[in-house]
Amino acid sequence: RYNQGVEPSGPAIKAIADTLSVSTEYLLGIDEDTSLSQKKKVDILDDETILAFDGMEIEESEKEKLRDYARYIISLREKENK
């Protein structure tokens, strides 16, 4: 409908921005930075977190390898801070 001259509403712009993972400011041409001002944070060690790469969900066996590596990195960080 935008091509027909219908301007999208605020909620529609927000929904489009969320779907495209960009800021509403970027969609409106206010900001050239495509990143969101507030990055989403997820816990890779949370079993409920859906891990994906390039739009495809990662297999469970690979997720566990990633979680093991994350635990290893955390343990190294904890050793450095002691």
Rank of each mutant, 00 (worst) to 15 (best):
I30R: 04
A12R: 08
L51E: 02
E7H: 14
A70W: 09
T34M: 04
D43F: 06
E25V: 00
R67W: 10
S9P: 05
T49K: 02
G5R: 07
T34W: 05
D18V: 01
L51I: 13
K14T: 10
E7G: 08
N81D: 06
L28H: 03
F53D: 05
S21L: 02
F53M: 14
R1W: 06
R71N: 14
D68A: 13
T34S: 04
S37A: 03
A15I: 05
S35T: 09
G55C: 03
F53W: 11
Q4D: 13
V22Q: 06
I58N: 03
G55K: 01
E64A: 05
R77E: 02
D68S: 13
D46F: 02
E57L: 09
R71G: 09
A17Y: 06
F53P: 06
K40N: 07
D47F: 01
S37L: 08
E48V: 09
R77M: 01
D31P: 00
K14A: 07
T49L: 04
I58Q: 04
E60P: 00
T19V: 03
Y2H: 14
I73T: 12
L51A: 10
E64K: 15
E59R: 12
S9T: 14
G5M: 08
T49I: 04
L51D: 05
D43C: 09
D47R: 10
A70Y: 09
D47Y: 07
I16T: 09
A70V: 08
S35E: 08
Q38F: 06
A17W: 01
S37M: 02
K39S: 10
R1S: 12
Q38V: 02
Y72P: 09
A70K: 14
R1H: 12
A17C: 06
Y26G: 00
S37C: 01
E59N: 14
T19F: 07
L20A: 15
I74Y: 06
Q4L: 12
D54I: 09
A15W: 07
G29K: 11
T34P: 13
A70E: 15
Y26D: 00
V22F: 11
S23V: 00
G5N: 15
E64F: 03
I58P: 01
Y72Q: 14
S35P: 00
I50V: 07
I73F: 04
S9Q: 11
Y26W: 06
S35A: 10
E25S: 09
D31Q: 04
E62F: 14
V42F: 05
T49Q: 04
D31A: 00
T34I: 12
L76G: 09
N3H: 11
I58W: 07
S21G: 14
Y69L: 14
M56Y: 12
E62Q: 15
E60C: 00
P11H: 10
K14E: 09
S9F: 15
P8D: 08
K79H: 04
G55S: 01
L36F: 01
I58C: 05
E48L: 01
Y72S: 15
